[in-house]
Design a binder for these strands. Structure first.
Lengths: 212, 212
DNA sequence: GCTTAACTACACTGCACGGTGTAGTGTAGA
DNA sequence: TCTACACTACACCGTGCAGTGTAGTTAAGC
């Protein structure tokens, strides 16, 4: 799924170093402001090797986003399995989930920052559009919300919309209010996520059928 | 409030032309990808004049954002006065408000796109931070929501949080789902705003005190 | 020791772009 | 007509940077 142009496909270690360096610099400086020389320097790799591995600065960006998407999906699946099993206290479960996803190693916040970067900074990369237009994270969350709906813990006639709303009330709002650099222990982050989850549950709490 | 470096302060018409051209190109291509020559060409002005007016590419960006913020605030105030007066049908009123703000001449969507651009593309402009960190739009909306709360039409213990949630469920979600280029008649936009307003009202509808 | 492959160091090209300096043009007022 | 001004057209500079070509180094396998 990854592997943009691994012309030589050398040691995975070097590949990871390059991806990590590129991700960090792209997030901190933006795509255009990040020079390939800086990435190579930070990765401890010669510029030539970088080009042999990825072929192109744009291809490197695609690889970074691809890798981030995979990481995020893995984190979501793992965290969901660990936090979103209980139906007893949905607020605690959803808040735990949001907090962990937001702050976990390369969580959704960095992912969203990358998305913004891609969407705004280079709005003309057909390859990227394909990669990131899958909305896999939202779909995964939607599936879980649908499950809660089936169990009667939520009222979600349209799970995908509900998932979008949950994401908007938590991650989207967090990254919009705070910058792209969010520290895990920032009290504002916890506050935003908490309020967001609260509002989400108020909007999607099961209500007596007669009320409508 | 505007006026970054109007070294010469010539005809307001030329100034507006430059601002408009810059805004359009910044939104379409991003800040770094937009050359000053392109802006001058599109504005029908010599590059030299552009520099005489604004002094600097960064100063031009600041002026653009400043102007956008002013426009948006004016639009919000005007539209709020025209749509958010009725308490009878809050859903219709809020949806109308959202739709008009989102699609109006330089609505919140473009504003948010500019914010993203600024935040991500050049994360090191102290001047810009000051300009856009006011959160004036959210504050204005919060004030109106508080008013609704006083009238018993909504249950908003914390108006500012409620305003953030409304914005997240509508504009933020819209710009995140659709690109920065949103046509006013895109049915998806209306759908997103409608669902967002619905969820917001479910979350902030007045509820019997006994229920909690 | 020899070959092969991965990699580095480094020089180099081409280009795009931000910003400046200036000569010249059109225009309005005295 | 002269002056002042706003503006254009254009040439120009410096620089940063993507991408390439290559000679040389290291290490592994034979």
């Amino acid at each position: 799924m990854t592997a943009a142009k691994p012309t030589r496909e050398g040691s995975a270690h070097k590949r990871a170093a390059i991806l990590g360096a590129a991700r960090g610099l792209f997030l901190a400086e933006g795509f255009d402001r990040t020079s390939v020389d800086a990435i190579a320097l930070r990765a401890g790799v010669s510029k030539r090797t970088l080009y042999d591995y990825f072929g192109d600065k744009q291809a490197l960006l695609i690889a970074v986003v691809d890798h981030a998407a995979d990481s995020l999906m893995a984190a979501i699946r793992r965290t969901m399995a660990e936090t979103l099993t209980e139906v007893t206290d949905l607020h605690a479960a959803l808040l735990d989930f949001s907090l962990r996803i937001a702050t976990e190693t390369f969580g959704s916040v960095d992912y969203l920052a990358l998305m913004r970067l891609v969407t705004n900074e280079s709005g003309h990369l057909p390859q990227l559009r394909d990669t990131l237009m899958t909305n896999a994270p939202e779909e995964a969350i939607a599936a879980r919300l649908a499950e809660f709906g089936r169990q009667g813990a939520l009222d979600v006639p349209n799970p995908r919309v509900a998932a979008d709303h949950l994401v908007a009330l938590t991650f989207l709002l967090a990254i919009n209010s705070l910058g792209s650099t969010i520290s895990a222990d920032d009290p504002r982050l916890r506050s935003i996520l908490d309020e967001g989850v609260r509002a989400f549950l108020r909007a999607y709490a099961p209500r007596p059928r007669a009320a409508l």
